[in-house]
């Protein structure tokens, strides 16, 4: 399908695409780092070691480190459930998981505030136990789990559906336990896709803004994650500081893109290999 462009209108289309990419994507990236370094390296260093910045980095890491394993586990369970069994409500289950993708993050934050806030039954019970859910770390983790829960499942479901379950069935019939079948048969087949799901979940968990801003309460030095710090410093007219925090997040985004490209290639490559092996086996 790929051809070398020959006619002038083909070159025109390519140039137009490059212009769109340059204006929409490359210029913003360049601007972030230009602004962050506009007052020199010393200023960047000062911003990076600012207590607010260090606190925000730490909080962002804590939220992400809790969110990613939770959604990894849930994503595997859900994907296993909807791709390995036929049951009533299978379609519904895989539709419900898409809801966080379609919802406005602010609305998501609001839902959690209404259900788990101090005025609610649940929130009230927890504050009786001395645990504050909203405007504190637990609430921020909860909304981040909500916002990022579809990624792992969405990556795994189509792959596991296309791979089928004959090999797992063979393992079970040969006497393997369910865990052994999963660990030694399924896991090696889905490892790249799993990693891909983790990369996507991680990027969104680090960068979530709307939902977290609703439930964080924006308490300086306590409940500010990196994206919230970007907004706070921007409002304080600390433009260089805001762009330094933004630069950290943009660097994470670039690493994400790189990993994503590599992992997509690896997933495709390993599934191509699998189909090749299969056709070799099928033709005696």
């Amino acid at each position: 399908m790929h051809e070398r462009p020959r006619h002038w209108h083909q070159w025109f289309l390519i140039m137009a695409a490059f212009a769109a990419i340059a204006i929409l994507l490359v210029m913003p990236l360049a601007l972030i780092f230009t602004e962050a370094f506009s007052q020199g390296w010393a200023m960047v260093q000062q911003n990076l070691t600012n207590p607010d910045m260090l606190g925000a980095i730490k909080l962002t890491l804590i939220v992400t480190l809790i969110t990613v394993p939770v959604n990894l586990l849930f994503g595997i369970l859900l994907a296993w459930c909807v791709t390995r069994y036929e049951f009533r409500g299978r379609k519904l289950l895989s539709t419900l998981i898409d809801i966080p993708f379609a919802m406005s993050p602010v609305v998501a934050g609001l839902c959690y505030l209404v259900v788990y806030g101090a005025q609610s039954v649940v929130g009230n019970w927890f504050s009786g136990m001395g645990v504050q859910l909203m405007f504190a770390l637990p609430g921020m983790v909860m909304v981040t789990v909500f916002v990022t829960c579809p990624y792992v499942a969405r990556v795994l479901i189509p792959l596991m559906e296309s791979q089928g379950q004959h090999e797992e069935e063979a393992a079970i019939i040969l006497g393997a336990s369910g865990w052994q079948a999963f660990l030694y048969v399924t896991l090696p087949k889905i490892r790249w896709a799993l990693l891909y799901g983790v990369v996507l979940t991680n990027a969104r968990a680090v960068g979530e803004f709307g939902a977290v801003s609703v439930v964080s309460g924006l308490i300086r030095g306590q409940t500010l994650t990196l994206p919230l710090l970007v907004q706070m410093w921007n409002q304080d007219y600390n433009t260089v500081g805001a762009f330094t925090a933004a630069g950290l997040l943009a660097a994470m985004a670039l690493v994400t893109l790189l990993l994503k490209t590599v992992l997509e290639w690896a997933t495709q490559h390993s599934s191509d290999n699998a189909t090749e092996q299969k056709t070799e086996q099928d033709t005696p």
């Binding site: 051809e3 960068g207 970007v230 933004a246 997040l249 943009a250 893109l257």
Partner: peptide, 27 residues
């Protein structure tokens, strides 16, 4: 089409999903 920079273009298309929205807004 096949042209230099095609893969880079393909990878960059996903930047808006990877870049936190607050960073996009600020920039």
């Amino acid at each position: 089409y096949r042209f230099p920079g095609r893969r880079l273009m393909d990878a960059l298309v996903d930047l808006p999903f990877a870049l936190p929205t607050a960073v996009a807004g600020l920039t």
